[in-house]
Design a protein around this nucleic acid. Sequence first.
DNA 1: CGCATCATTGAGGGCTCTCAAGAACTGTGG
DNA 2: CCACAGTTCTTGAGAGCCCTCAATGATGCG
Lengths: 244, 244
Amino acid sequence: MLQEPILTGTQNCAECPIRHRAVCARCETDELQRLEEVKYYRRFEAGQTIIWCGDRMDFVGSVVSGVATLSQTMEDGRTQMVGLLLPSDFVGRPGRPVAAYDVTATTDVLMCCFRKAPFEGLMADTPHIAHRLLEMTLDELDAAREWMLVLGRKTAREKIASLLSIIARRDAILHQRSKDAPVVFDLPLTREAMADYLGLTLETVSRQVSALRKDGVISLEGKRRITVPDLSRLLDEAGDDSAT
Amino acid sequence: MLQEPILTGTQNCAECPIRHRAVCARCETDELQRLEEVKYYRRFEAGQTIIWCGDRMDFVGSVVSGVATLSQTMEDGRTQMVGLLLPSDFVGRPGRPVAAYDVTATTDVLMCCFRKAPFEGLMADTPHIAHRLLEMTLDELDAAREWMLVLGRKTAREKIASLLSIIARRDAILHQRSKDAPVVFDLPLTREAMADYLGLTLETVSRQVSALRKDGVISLEGKRRITVPDLSRLLDEAGDDSAT
DNA sequence: CGCATCATTGAGGGCTCTCAAGAACTGTGG
DNA sequence: CCACAGTTCTTGAGAGCCCTCAATGATGCG
């Protein structure tokens, strides 16, 4: 799905694609070296569960490539996605021994893992890691709160448009397209995963995607490839005050 | 609503009721002294807006007493509460010049404010503040994610039960009651505020509260005072896996 | 080609919202 | 102490949005 460098064994941090956005972004070379001593890579296939809620966590880490999801499940099977993990996002909570959520790979995922105990020691020693983690956590908190508005107050159509807007915006930044060019991207999520993210059923997701297509807000190539001819139109549909 | 100490002018941190839970919890006496130099108190009446979304923020701070809410509003007036601020909770984001949410006092509120620029300087110097803030932010992120499940997947009845559970649990901890004694507390929120928190209308909130009363899960004295005869019953209604 | 997975579409029902009226509580002034 | 407005809350009736159940269609892989 997403391009992924072929990595075998240990990789040099200096050449890491997420070097300047991950939890290690602010580290000096000596700090990086200490991180490198406690790090290792793990690879997961699309669909595979990375961590089960309640499992002992002996590592924390960063998503290097691919997309993973954070989700919660009730006894009767209702599930709600509570986070989308993109490259550079952090997994795990320092100081907590047990995972609070299920983590699942939705595409092939490469993770850079740090052994937990030494990582916690590093956090205490080197302010750069702790500061960066605080910054990232504050960003995630903002994203979670943004999402609470989507879940609590938006219609199914607005929910779909909101999700597509987020992915489209990320894509626009990543590829630095011109403002007026149509945005094209692949959905990294199945209809079911979209439903779990949006608090809908997969049938409703399917219906609303079809409706947006019929209304010309988006067009589809196959099931996953989406073209947005007019991004501001999509933002309107999402109900966000895009201004202008 | 909540008892509130009568404070005039500056107060000594050593006697502060939230001394050991707020952002300053880990500070040594010399760090506290530096904090005290940049702090001041502000008082807000119930119903008053503390901060408008988009306002310049020249301070951050802690709720000392009372209850405040964090909320987002769409252009057409739909609003979603995204956080409940209780005593010791932190307000504002270091490094951000502008408020991202509306902050409203739902009861009389006393806030301990720190001038933003010097506070940010202190954060860079003293690891205790940054560490505590990270810990608090991670807790808030967990709470936000917990709430996403409520908003996305729970029924109206379960939503009400979930909200009451949260308040009841906090009250049980605060008052250290025996396990089996009935829990009694005052709702710090109007029906409308509850609706904004739960992603419902106030009519639905009212109906479901009545239904829980008719079914004996709770009983009411006036509109606000609630008795929970059997907490585990309430937790069941909330749909959480309370286990035993 | 057949199977499995993922997605689409339809029909009907239920939960929550909208609109509306009235009741209960609060504070003010006579 | 009571009258009266203003706010908050409750309750009802009907509509609409989304869910549930079900069948069909597309896509990919052995």
